[in-house]
């Protein structure tokens, strides 16, 4: 397998409905108060020229992943598919990765005390399904495929996709319509409440 997974999120289509984040919660039994995937709302402008952007946020599956670097036991690895995964057997729960992730995408599971996050729905994708978030998106705003898929190629060429990249992490998740002002207001996924 040479090609790697890519997720494209079209903010011009996203309705902010949270179907994706609840699908993720249900699929992975994510505990209340923790998120692998959540939709952020960002408002800009003054009445009556107000905009609200909806931004599904999840692990960005960085090519250069800060979480991997800090893991003392190398429990975080990059798969051949490009997905960044945390090996639950290996993890010893230091939570260094939680702090290292610039997106706040990692949380400590309150029962197992191990680090957890989005794994691009490995279990579903292996069975030929789409990740839970992409499968249920009512507006097809979330696309998921190998990067050499013609649809992905075409979208990337035409669609002005950019990345949420507070550091040079080179994510595998691309956004269409993510302007600088909105990007600067995005919060870390598992710190939404504290940062409000």
């Amino acid at each position: 397998m040479n090609s790697k997974y890519t997720m494209l999120i079209d903010l011009d289509s996203c309705s902010g409905c949270h179907a994706c984040s609840v699908a993720c919660k249900a699929e992975h039994q994510v505990p209340i108060g923790k998120n692998r995937h959540t939709v952020q709302y960002v408002e800009n402008g003054e009445f009556p020229h107000v905009t609200r952007n909806f931004i599904p946020t999840l692990c960005q599956h960085c090519t250069d992943a800060p979480c991997m670097e800090v893991c003392a036991v190398s429990a975080i690895t990059i798969k051949e598919s490009g997905a960044i995964v945390i090996d639950q057997e290996q993890c010893i729960g230091t939570s260094a990765c939680v702090d290292a992730c610039p997106y706040g995408a990692i949380y400590m599971d309150p029962t197992s005390f191990k680090a957890m996050k989005c794994d691009f729905c490995e279990s579903r994708v292996e069975g030929g399904e789409l990740p839970a978030c992409a499968a249920t998106c009512p507006t097809d705003a979330i696309q998921f495929a190998f990067e050499d898929d013609p649809k992905i190629q075409q979208a990337l060429e035409k669609g002005k996709y950019t990345r949420w990249e507070p550091e040079s992490t080179q994510p595998r998740v691309w956004y269409k319509g993510l302007d600088h002002q909105t990007e600067s207001k995005l919060k870390r996924i598992n710190h939404l409440r504290e940062e409000k």
Partner: peptide, 10 residues
């Protein structure tokens, strides 16, 4: 068309 919203899933 096979999509289910947040409420349905919850």
């Amino acid at each position: 068309g096979g999509k289910l919203c947040a409420k349905g899933q919850a």
